[in-house]
Write a protein that binds this DNA or RNA. Sequence first.
DNA 1: GTTTGATTATGTTATTTAACACAAATATAA
DNA 2: TTATATTTGTGTTAAATAACATAATCAAAC
Lengths: 233, 233
Amino acid sequence: MIHNRNKCEKCIDSQNSIFKVLNQREKELLTKHRICTNYKKGEIIFREGDRPSGLICLCEGKVKVFKEGVGGREQIIRMAKPIGFIGYRAMFAGDNYISSALAIEDCEICMIEKEILIKLIKSNSDLALEFINTFAIELGFSNNRTVTLTQKHIRGRLAESLLFLKDTFGYEEDKATIKVYLSREDLANLSNMTTSNAIRTLSSFATEKVLAIDGRRLKILNLKELSKISELG
Amino acid sequence: MIHNRNKCEKCIDSQNSIFKVLNQREKELLTKHRICTNYKKGEIIFREGDRPSGLICLCEGKVKVFKEGVGGREQIIRMAKPIGFIGYRAMFAGDNYISSALAIEDCEICMIEKEILIKLIKSNSDLALEFINTFAIELGFSNNRTVTLTQKHIRGRLAESLLFLKDTFGYEEDKATIKVYLSREDLANLSNMTTSNAIRTLSSFATEKVLAIDGRRLKILNLKELSKISELG
DNA sequence: GTTTGATTATGTTATTTAACACAAATATAA
DNA sequence: TTATATTTGTGTTAAATAACATAATCAAAC
């Protein structure tokens, strides 16, 4: 964790940013009250139980957000990419974090003071509605996940996770390789299965020519079939 | 579904209502733009895929919110009691419903026009923050549920559901009987298990003197033990 | 460059839970 | 009431998946 003097621009200024609804003066206020930090791959950004000290915006890198369940078993709740928020639920609920966040690539984050954020939400109703919309979408995602992870069988769960990763992070230039490189263990923790079963199921997808596997590079060879496996459960 | 002329009072005026932050003029606007409806036990309030036409406030009765999963298998996502909202996620996300709602008791609901609600949120930032807070809490609940339902074993899942029902609906006057009467099938669908297994596990809780069962009346005899079963998974 | 630890891979066994079958009890309707 | 459907209860079997064991491969540290 290293504080950074070259502050990121896009968190606040990008067209994809939720803050696009702010005027110049409001954006400047935001810019003044943030701290930018760098995290190395593998570093923890926050831990379950920690107290949120502000809104965390991910400017660069990729993050996994996970919960420790029964017997320390990890369940990945969410994957974050730039530009996006992490840990915002706890901040808005006034809770401590109920999940942990870990940089799966080198990351750059901005932390925005809670008081300033609340002040801006109070003064700009469009920003409030943007946050409401963000929550509504993530809650829908979470509800879907609950049903998927509990009802689909292993193949369906893994297939769905792969499609989710593809939708979230997109493809490499070859338009087939998923643009994120997770360990088999992370894939398992995303899909609610043991590492062994993730490995086995990946192999069978490769045998069936649905995927091509090269270490952690996963290339989708047959998207239609992968979707079918995901849908059938 | 019967429209009701005696409009409910508490949805808007109660101290538990999210609308407590509104002033009198704002409350009147809300009161003018709502439709109150009665539903009989067993009636569907909305279905997965329907288009939300406003914010639904539950004034009276109890509702289960559920999703149809693989092979039509039902997963109960949420239980609602007065005063509370149902289907608000879809409305705020601008989506169609991704879950269905069914009255498990006779119910009275108010429907508030979306345009009026958005107008109020825009003009009253406290209301906006209240909705943000509501979402943040429900998202936390949903994330917890995902981990619970995937990782805990049958006994742990059922024990947790019973504790959840007790926390949500409270006790009868005997301070032990859970104040909601669900079928074994609903208990199963809440806890991600088959009906047979819900029945069997309930019986074993009764044998262990953790519960006393009288039809659908479930009396908690040993709360500490039930919590332990829930925690151990 | 070697050692050490982590990750990936694969086979076997044990456990959990669903699926199925059917009976009894209860609620609902004719 | 009697008939019919629904819910509850219980036993048996089958399927899915975790747990465990062990080896091979790969990456990182010394």
